[in-house]
Amino acid sequence: MSELGRHLKEARLQKGMSLDDVQEVTKIRKKYLEAIEAGDYKVLPGSFYVRAFIKTYAEAVGVNPDELMEEHGNVPAAPVDTTMETVIQKRSRKPETERNAKWLPTVLMWTFPVLILVVIYLYASNSLNKPESPTVDSADVTSEQQDPATQQPSPTAVGGGVAAPSEPAGTAEATAAPTAAPTAVPTPSPSPAPQAVTVTQDRKSGKTTIYKVSAPSGTPVEVKIVATGVSWLEVYKGENSKGEKLSFGNTEAGQSMSFTLDAEGMYIKSGYSPATDITVNGETVTDGKTSSRLLLELDNTGASAGGGNDTGSTDDGDESQDSGTEE
């Protein structure tokens, strides 16, 4: 086994990952991962893939690939054929330039006639669709305005001026009617404040720390995980990793995910706890370890969480069942 392969293997074991886990994250076949750890680069399909696979493997287990390559300089370098690349680029660009120069005069020649036709068409359409202004007979207007026989004198009020027109009886009654008083709107009484959700460390089972989450019945409990760096993270519904998979893979700085805790509980495994901030309804949950395994159990009866006996192992099948052992 090479020093580089030993370094990657130790980092993988420290993360608690198997080769199958790394294969699922990186999409690199397991036999290539085994060859990298053994230092047998002949198994890989080419020298270019050696460095690419090592870099991807290192990022998956939380190792800086540049520092790893610099520390172990026995990795074969990928071949670079700059001459062939330059020739291919020159050959591909020349025909494209010639084609553009050939078609440009033709495009310009047809563009201007088309634009002229479009302008003419738009002008003709606007002229045809313009509505005609109505014609007014000046003789009718003059006779209507100057015929004194048809003019009715306005009634004169006492003392001079024009008398105001009389209002109908219904209108006067409506005006004199008093305005109805506005109906008072009852002020709603404030609703009681909801009871708080409490999180209490209950017990330990092997490497798993179990927390009781007490919440009133019907109150939603939000589990939020905010990543500040790279860490291997697994989230399952239930008591262990055999439940429904909710999240699986490496985290990135700034990544945030949210889940709802129900009666089945939630099992969280963090390969590097300082890079994952886990909260339940805003309350931080941590066991103070570098690599954490947490089990959240929902108690929606409203009773406060207290100590209890170990009801069973919640760790993965390949981990210790000793309830008093901590990492």
Rank of each mutant, 00 (worst) to 15 (best):
Thr83Asp: 13
Glu37His: 04
Glu222Met: 14
Glu326Pro: 06
Val162Pro: 00
Pro168Phe: 00
Gly307Trp: 08
Leu19Thr: 00
Pro134Ala: 11
Tyr272Leu: 01
Gly16His: 03
Gln151Ala: 15
Val119Ile: 13
Thr325Tyr: 14
Glu283Arg: 07
Val230Met: 12
Lys212Asp: 14
Gln321Val: 10
Val75Thr: 07
Glu59Val: 03
Asn250Tyr: 02
Phe112Tyr: 10
Thr260Ser: 12
Leu295Gly: 11
Lys242Val: 05
His7Tyr: 05
Gly238His: 04
Val107His: 12
Gly249Ala: 02
Ala172Glu: 10
Val114Ser: 14
Asp40Leu: 03
Asp202Leu: 11
Ile116Arg: 02
Val87Gly: 01
Val80Asn: 04
Pro182Asn: 05
Gln14Phe: 10
Thr286Arg: 09
Val185Pro: 03
Ser214Arg: 03
Ser231Lys: 04
Val185Met: 12
Pro155Asp: 08
Gln145Pro: 00
Val223Gly: 03
Glu24Pro: 00
Val235Leu: 05
Met257Val: 13
Ser320Val: 15
Gly73Met: 02
Leu294Ser: 09
Gln255His: 06
Asn64Glu: 05
Asp66Arg: 01
Leu233Asn: 02
Asp137Cys: 09
Asp147Ser: 12
Pro216Met: 08
Lys55His: 09
Lys245Cys: 07
Glu10Ile: 11
Gly324Val: 10
Asp318Ile: 04
Gly218His: 06
Thr82Glu: 14
Gly312Met: 06
Glu96Tyr: 09
Ser217Asp: 15
Asp322Thr: 09
Arg51Ser: 15
Phe248Gly: 13
Val141Asp: 08
Thr286Val: 07
Gln14His: 09
Asn250Glu: 08
Asn126Cys: 11
Lys55Ala: 12
Ser320Asp: 15
Asp262Trp: 05
Gln255Asn: 05
Val213Ile: 13
Ile210Trp: 05
Glu319Met: 15
Thr228Asp: 12
Ser258Pro: 07
Pro79Cys: 12
Leu19Glu: 04
Pro95Arg: 00
Ser138His: 15
Glu144Tyr: 11
Gly160Asn: 06
Leu8Glu: 06
Ala38Phe: 03
Leu33Phe: 07
Ala263Asp: 15
Glu96Ser: 10
Lys212Trp: 09
Phe248Glu: 09
Trp110Met: 03
Thr198His: 11
Pro220Asn: 08
Arg12Trp: 11
Ala215Lys: 00
Ala227Tyr: 09
Ser270Lys: 02
His7Ala: 13
Pro220Glu: 08
Val226Ala: 14
Ser189Gln: 13
Gly170Cys: 12
Pro95Ser: 02
Met69Glu: 05
Phe259Asp: 05
Pro95Glu: 00
Ile225Gly: 02
Val199Phe: 01
Lys9His: 15
Leu296Gln: 07
Ala35Tyr: 10
Gly62Glu: 11
Thr183Tyr: 02
Ala60Pro: 01
Pro131Tyr: 04
Glu70Phe: 01
Asp322Cys: 10
